[in-house]
């Protein structure tokens, strides 16, 4: 109950701060946040968009960890945990794509540009989308769990490249690209203290929310499997 109360308070604070903190050219009081060239008022997307991208990495990492655990112990509960993480990872990747696309429309002029960041997240969606197709195509649950575990391990090897490396070594429009003079607020820490506090609080709150959703997700998969076996 304490966990949920902390989550509720943190997320509420992030929403209030994310909407109401004023952006000024040179902050003079603690509650003001700096104007970042190229982002302006839209810089507040950092508090909501970046955590979704962060959670997609966390979720795919957890899917890989539980995939490895399944291969070692052949416990179906680990497959359920990996599957729940995969589902959430996919949801958060879609959310990161959609929120980024809306932001791009009003910053770059169109919803989609095939910028290296957009292209890399699109490839990730394809990679993990194929995993769901693979899972639904196999009826034997042991075989499905084994193949899914191996796939999630191999798929995760591409995640650091597509999320952290490729968009930074290539020229593009997204903050943090190789040709970005500002280097991006997150990469270069151009945020002031207040902005950093809200940003990191947002990361913590979103991660806590993810963990809660993941627990509900894998428990429901386990219960469904047990009930299914009972009926059979």
């Amino acid at each position: 109950m304490i966990y949920k109360s902390i989550l509720f308070v943190l997320m509420t604070l992030v929403i209030i701060a994310g909407f109401s903190l004023p952006i000024v050219p040179s902050p003079s009081v603690w509650y003001e946040i700096p104007n970042i060239p190229g982002l302006e008022e839209k810089a507040k997307i950092i508090f909501f968009h970046v955590p979704t991208a962060w959670l997609s990495v966390v979720a795919f990492l957890m899917a890989m960890i539980y995939g490895i655990k399944y291969l070692r112990k052949q416990n179906m509960d680990d497959d359920a945990k990996s599957n729940a993480a995969l589902q959430l990872g996919m949801i958060f990747t879609i959310l990161a794509t959609v929120t980024g696309s809306i932001w791009a429309k009003f910053t770059w002029g169109a919803f989609w540009h095939w910028d290296p960041r957009e292209t890399s997240i699109f490839i990730l969606l394809l990679i993990y989308g194929s995993l769901f197709a693979l899972r639904s195509a196999i009826e034997n649950e042991d075989k499905r769990a084994k193949l899914s575990a191996v796939y999630s391990i191999i798929a995760f090897l591409t995640v650091p490249f597509f999320i952290f490396i490729m968009p930074r070594i290539m020229s593009g429009l997204h903050p943090g690209s190789a040709n970005d003079d500002n280097l991006g607020p997150v990469v270069d820490f151009k945020m002031n203290g207040t902005m950093q506090i809200v940003f990191y609080t947002s990361l913590i709150a979103f991660t806590m929310f993810y963990y809660w959703m993941w627990k509900i997700g894998y428990k429901s998969i386990i219960i469904k499997d047990r009930l299914h076996k009972k009926i059979i």
Binding site: I16, F19, W212, I216, S220
Partner: peptide
């Protein structure tokens, strides 16, 4: 913008309450 803020806070409260009830139901089934 504060109207939008109140709307988002209301939605968050709704999602939180729903998740909480879902969690409780799941525990009872377990």
């Amino acid at each position: 913008i504060y109207i939008v803020l109140f709307i988002v806070l209301t939605i968050w409260a709704g999602i939180f309450t729903y998740m909480n009830s879902l969690d409780k139901r799941l525990k009872e089934i377990e």
